[in-house]
Write a protein that binds this DNA or RNA. Sequence first.
DNA 1: AATCAGGTTGGAAAC
DNA 2: AGTTTCCAACCTGAT
Length: 500
Amino acid sequence: MAKIPSVVHWFRLDLRIHDNLALRNAINEAENRKYLLRPVYVLDPDIASKVGANRLRFLIQSLQDLDTNLRKLNSCLFILRGKASELLPKLFDEWQVKYLTTQVDIDPEILKEEEIVEKVANEKDIFIVKRVQHTVFDTQSVLKKNNDCVPLTYQKFLSLVQEIQVKDTIEITKSLSDHCKPSDYCDNNNVPLLSELGIDESMLTACKYPGGETEGLKRLHMYMAKKQWVCKFEKPNSSPNSIEPSTTVLSPYISHGCVSSKLFYHKLKEVENGIPHTMPPVSLMGQLMWREFYYTAGTGTENFDKMVGNKLCTQIPWASNDEQLKAWAEGRTGYPFVDAIMRQLKEEGWIHHLARHMVACFLTRGDLWISWEEGAKVFEGYLLDYDWSLNAGNWMWLSASAFFYKYFRVYSPVAFGKKTDKEGLYIRKYVPELKKYPTEYIYEPWKAPQNVQKAADCIIGEGYPQRIVDHDKIHKENMQKMSVAYKANKEKKSLKRPRS
DNA sequence: AATCAGGTTGGAAAC
DNA sequence: AGTTTCCAACCTGAT
């Protein structure tokens, strides 16, 4: 029997309908040629070994919402279980695929799969369309503008993109014709339940940030309606330890592609237009540009997520200490502020950017002297807004391995949180065993006299751990180590490029 | 070649 | 109380 050829749109980090040019290209191709449209998402069941339950929940919710939105267009989402590199090539024949669309991504794991799929598609004469739609700018052309060098400062990056005209977003509104809809393709909802990935949903805390395009757009519009708030936004003045987030929490939606970064860009321009407003790097637009900055660096740097083999990354002789790494990851370092942050991260999947600074500095150059790569892996599991290039870039920044070099600026686990939360309400929420501690001791409970510890129903060393390191002492030793590592790095560089 | 300004968000002490 | 200075001194990009 002669089969009707197909067009496939491969969804990856673009879990949305709006501003999805690659999807629109697929729809148009299907309509024009009377082919079948097959939107797919490939879910590797192995994902559960790397990605935490919270982020998986966000992903599943996003897929469910995407399916709902596709059905409104007379289509649906088809979820393949397995590896794209194994499944898609088979389906190219079975479905008679002639046209394949997807977005440009940068995460090496996605690229590894893409490379294989692309090779097979080329052999089968399938036309491939890839669209830059995860970032505001085309990072490749930004690099080209800088003579194929990675801009190493934010200001330099801004100067490169300053006069680039950002294209308009595109919309998909017309429903698909019936003849483009494969019969039996959409008969059942095939978005997996969390239990399919081995997750017991009842073990999760209440869902604070539900995934999906619908939720993401709602959040975007809610914040964009607060014009004064947007125009006065200054990141360093927002609080890392407020009980409710002091920033937008749009990041999970942008990292999954539920909300288009380009849409965010245009909405911000609209709000700022004609009103006095803050500027990058501290403004909301500045936050979006930080993302572009790290994407550009990630695109132009081999082994960007590693220390060894990464040209940008200062080589630092980190030590490994599994016990301390675990204590950090599980929020039992004995420093209440650090532990509160790590527990919020684990429970809710989102922490404020400055909170990330605090715990990243603590793990690496500040206190534990453990490699930023270890911290990045922990964040990868927990963060709803995990993003390959931002995660690696920010970890290098905080560990003073790249982009940032003033290593003598160390965050104090005792002093830093007090600036925005004197009473320690944040600690009391996320480290409830210390709830009854007097404010005087909430950031340093080990200083509380025994009778105070008893009265607060929590003995340090029993109900809550002793400090695993002495910050005052160790951060100075680590500064010395940083100085030595920098000197060694400098010598290596001058050896490689001797003066002519 | 050498110098200089500037860098999203430190802390503690000194005014 | 809010700003300034010290700490010990980094790197990039521009000139």
